[in-house]
Write a protein that binds this DNA or RNA. Structure first.
Lengths: 171, 171
DNA sequence: CTAACTGCTTTCATTTTGCAATCAGTTTGA
DNA sequence: TCAAACTGATTGCAAAATGAAAGCAGTTAG
């Protein structure tokens, strides 16, 4: 991670911060998988990031102000990583990327269902989800809405597909 | 550019195609700078891509179906690169990245003005710009709107800032 | 008191990047 | 006509980034 910038273009600057193969996947896992500890991020992702790369990216993201780190009171060595407001606002980028990938790339059914829902939900759903993330990561209380949260709905849809697949395989 | 995928996650798959430091900058130059030839892309960008990297990325983007290549009738060796529909639909990702970068990173004034306009214009402006790109790159005629196009407005705003800066420097 | 778990760091091989030089064909201009 | 400039690349090589596996020191649970 070099620190000299190539240009003052906003797209270029954004790419210099999160334009590698892993940073946005870490953010994704924090957002959609609610992973907050090093070990969760290490083992939880589909892709299997190496420990050295994860450590390096967490450091970079921390320095960039996209995530923050607090000690976990339950364990002296454990740290809890949280998204900052800046990190939470990466959601629309992730959502657009998910939508594009869903449309044009060979996405697996179970991992694509969230992308489809986010696409169908549009910016309004993203904003709601961001509010939920603010509550989880920043402790900012939000007005409770009726029914399940966006996070819950995404998770439920994912589980539903998994169940359907198990069903199909059995028959 | 390895070809074995890490997971069927739409975000991951998208990152595997355009998740490097250069691909999206090339797309950006084709979209906003209307650069269509190898030499234009090589020399035109703020960032100064190397010729071998550019050649490699063009090959990758071609293989991924994000751009296409045609011979230029005016010069037997010249090729014209165009965005495909798939490539044009990367615009919302770029727009979101530009918006995020504009908000949180030290963007230069002259290069940030387009980002600001795209943010203010929102998805509606993006859709209009994508229609203009379809006309330019795919030859799909669009219903002519009154007034200057989005591309022209962005370009004009950029020039206006440059002129203002020259003015300020003189006084 | 030991085994498992914590967040990393180290090591080293492989891959990617980036710069400069080069190349062969094409066109332009004297 | 013939050299210079321009076309889209490719090559060689050094430097940097990446990635897998092993290791490490402190912490906690049994």
């Amino acid at each position: 991670m070099s620190d000299l910038q190539r240009s003052g273009c906003p797209i270029n600057l954004t790419l210099e911060v999160v334009g590698d193969k892993w940073s946005l996947l870490i953010i994704r896992d924090m957002m959609f998988g609610n992973r907050r500890h090093y070990r969760e991020l290490l083992g939880g992702s589909e892709e299997g990031i190496s420990s050295n790369i994860l450590a390096d990216r967490l450091k970079t993201l921390l320095a960039a102000g996209i995530i923050s780190r607090d000690d976990d009171p339950s364990h002296k060595q454990k740290g809890i990583y949280s998204l900052t407001e800046q990190g939470i606002e990466l959601l629309p980028i992730l959502a657009q990327m998910a939508g594009w990938g869903y449309k044009y790339l060979p996405v697996s059914e179970e991992l694509g269902i969230r992308a489809r829902l986010l696409m169908e939900g549009g910016p309004k759903m993203w904003a709601e989800f961001m509010d939920e993330l603010r509550e989880i990561h920043l402790g900012i209380k939000r007005r409770k809405k009726a029914g399940p949260s966006v996070g819950e709905r995404l998770q439920a849809a994912y589980q539903r597909v998994l169940a359907e697949q198990a069903e199909t395989r059995r028959s």
